[in-house]
Design a protein around this nucleic acid. Sequence first.
RNA 1: UGGGAUGUAGUGUAAUGGUAACACUGCAGAUUCUGGUUCUGCCUUUGGGGGUUCGAAUCCCUCCAUCCCAGCCA
Length: 565
Amino acid sequence: MENEKNEARPLNFLEKIIEDDLKNGRVPDNKIVTRFPPEPNGYLHIGHIKSICINFGLAEKYGGRCHLRLDDTNPAKEETEYIDSIKEDIKWLGFDWGKYEFYASDYYDQLYEIAINLIKEGKAYVDELSAEEMKEYRGSLTEPGKNSPWRDRSVEENLRLFEEMKKGKYPEGSLTLRAKIDMASPNINMRDPALYRIKYAHHPRTGDKWCIYPMYDFTHPISDAIEGITHSICTLEFEDHRPAYDWACSIDGIEHTPHQYEFARLNINYLLMSKRKLLYLVNNHLVSGWDDPRMPTISGVRRRGYSPEAMKDFVSRVGVAKVEGVVDYSLMEFCVREDLNKRAKRLMAVLDPLKIVIDNYPDGKVEYFEAEDNPEDENSKKHKIAFSKNLYIEKEDFMETPVKGYHRLYPGNEIRLKYAYYIKANSIEKDENGNILAVHCTYDPESRGGTTADGRKVKGTSHWVSADHALVAEVRQYDKLFKAECPGAATGNYLDDLNPDSLKVIPAAYIEEEGAKAKVGDYLQFIRNGYYCVDMKDSSAEHMVFNRTCTLKDSWAKQKAKMGL
RNA sequence: UGGGAUGUAGUGUAAUGGUAACACUGCAGAUUCUGGUUCUGCCUUUGGGGGUUCGAAUCCCUCCAUCCCAGCCA
């Protein structure tokens, strides 16, 4: 099913490059090797799904392999918790790196040796410039930089200093090891980039073994080279680093030469993908955590009830290119709905109840009707639904004085209760303030099962539950976290665009009994209400909690809006 | 103002010298025991200006717009 959809798609620019490389024998053993290299400093988000799908997807498609490499070169920011969540998220998406799990820190010894050789070749030096001084010496975007006064130390002195740096003789920030490239380069990344800095931080994997840590521009290309990566795919902001990447790959002793390619990262309107901003939301309890169902994290969308297949379909539809754009949220919702429509089990749930009394239905009588689990599935199973005299329907399915175009229940109008009977509204029971307490109806016994012998049609079909049989559960109605397409665009502060209605809790919704069987991971549709899932954290057998994954398309709501209602 | 990149319907992505298309959105209609699904139709596109060519989204020149880069972050 998934493959059919992908087959028709044209090649993206990376696939073209790879096919060309393969065709021209530029790939060792004709096996491409890619890698997904997250820094374990936060939770993966939807943007990472694109990168994961590209890297693992390309490897799958061309019979190569994809490495998982945790880019752990900055112990100040990285934590084991993040490593674990990253692995879980990739697995959830259905990708498997097998034995190819690596850490940049696996290469610390090799990197150190390479640095020593660089020094010996006069291609690296220990600098004593402070951070501020280094900034000054770097020049600006328009002006060239100038050489550090420490640039021309002897090899011996550099070797000694670097050795001492490693041994912990110097405080943080006092010394760096720098590549000797070109302080006048128009590309700032080539103005003697730092290779190593001193950092007295506990590393999640190497502990306190090291107090000097290699920088990205040094570590990444060499890690790629060591692992035999053929196509090192990253996002656009690293384009400027490609010369540095190529510089590192050309260091003596590096035999394998990987190549870097850049694609545009995924942006989606109404969503924020910045780790810093997401972290703020978490720390300030504006959401319940990284896995809050409103978060654009992988753990968030998982808990929200999106399926990995839907997310993969989504990024596949977005495509891969070098144009920086913003994808419509509606495309993602489309993918989620399309996926869920095919797989979600249908249940009837009344979220905003209006009591219905079927006056001509015998007291205490209970009938069971059969409901299809999924009408989209030919082999759908069925389940039973209890019907009785006292029912609930949605409040919005009844109007005392109907507006134009309304074809649900109103006095004198006949509708169908799905799978059950036709009913007609007779009278309205109100309290002293005029609030409706119940609507009294009569049912047509001839319409049993939802159709009549005379073949007459009704325009409305409502879902319902039997008041005496319903499961009472909590329902969390999630909506977009931000109400603006580009949060913060108007005021400069994304918090101003937080959607105050992003979560509405319904403490006691009525759900048909079958709902009690729902488990974490099940995909559900509450008929006419939306797609739902069982909350993986807060739901229990005694107190079930359902999350709204997304709404159904609602053309009636649109029509009403147009009429100004 | 230095360097690097990118401009194709509202959005995303194809078309690499030969009829500009696919998907989403939007709009209209049909079907429907979910105002869902499904089906049909409609809307709208090559940033501007030159040039090469029988022919340009595609090649050349130029202008414009947008994004990225001055961490001892990745």
